[in-house]
Computed example of a mutant assay.
Amino acid sequence: MAGFVTRFAPSPTGFLHRGHAYSALTAHAAARAADGRFLLRIEDIDQTRCRPEFETAIYEDLAWLGLGWETPVRRQSDEMADYAGALDGLAARGLIYRCFRTRKEIAEDIGRAPHGAMEMFRGAPLPRHDESHRLAAGEPFAWRLSLAAAEAALGGFGGLTFVEEGSGPNGEQGVIAVRPELGGDVVLARKDVGVAYHLAATFDDALQGVSHVVRGQDLFEASHIQRLLQALLGLPSPVYRHHPLLTGPDGKRYAKRDRAETLREIRARGVTPEALRRELGFD
């Protein structure tokens, strides 16, 4: 397929495990089948959790698996000026606002919502005097995307769709109507982290010419907000291919927080990359 470009974009907050290997191999296989390009991107914007040793291990583990990628590799922490420019553009159009609420306060608001967690947080800018007072006091805040302002700017969300060539967690396929309310007024930047995932990933996919986003079904709902950002920023919309999440013998998905066996540990047990690829369904 002419112009096929996809990527694997891990965050160096821990060592890679089988689930990461499955996702990387899936994206790499898709690029090879289409005679396309496979990119590696390091999503290290959260400098409070990312570590250089984890980034080094990403390169080592993927090379051990037999994967190759184009260089130079884009590291998000090196490109913060790009994201700041995109954020400034949204701010100038009144599409984002400063939110001073803590995560705990927002969680409590969501819990009180009549439809539960699916009715995600929606807010609004503070009156100018109150905002100025809080800024002068040095209170922390997050930049949130205003769905109300975005809807007004686009004349509604009714015409927004994205194409799903894989499947969502509930079997969603084909042309998907965008539902930004699933995410609510998402955070696009924080003082402690800088730019947040949705803005950085959306910006990078467009900048790098990604035509197909191949990733796990846990990020399917993120596509709704990212498609909205594409519309607001005048960026192209890639095709999405979400794949099922790899699970262990206990039926639970592999996760760093659950201390899933890492690729480094698998390698130390003497398992060959060929054996692991076969185990994951890649002969």
Results as ranks from 00 to 15, higher is better:
178 V>F: 03
267 R>K: 15
144 R>N: 02
231 A>C: 08
211 S>D: 07
229 L>Y: 01
119 E>P: 01
58 I>F: 00
258 D>V: 11
157 F>K: 09
128 R>K: 14
139 E>W: 02
23 S>T: 15
171 G>W: 01
129 H>I: 13
257 R>I: 13
208 Q>T: 09
65 L>T: 13
206 A>C: 10
209 G>Q: 07
166 G>T: 09
180 P>L: 08
19 G>M: 09
277 R>S: 09
257 R>Q: 15
188 L>P: 01
233 L>G: 06
40 L>I: 14
111 G>N: 11
32 R>Y: 02
81 A>F: 02
267 R>S: 10
105 E>T: 07
146 S>F: 01
222 A>C: 11
39 L>F: 02
24 A>S: 09
209 G>I: 14
238 P>K: 03
101 R>K: 14
167 S>F: 03
135 L>F: 01
194 G>S: 05
59 Y>T: 10
281 G>W: 07
79 E>Y: 04
65 L>K: 04
148 A>T: 14
118 M>W: 02
260 A>W: 01
61 D>A: 12
124 A>V: 08
119 E>M: 07
117 A>N: 03
31 A>H: 05
168 G>W: 00
43 E>F: 02
78 D>T: 06
93 R>F: 03
26 T>M: 11
16 L>P: 06
209 G>V: 13
109 D>A: 08
22 Y>D: 13
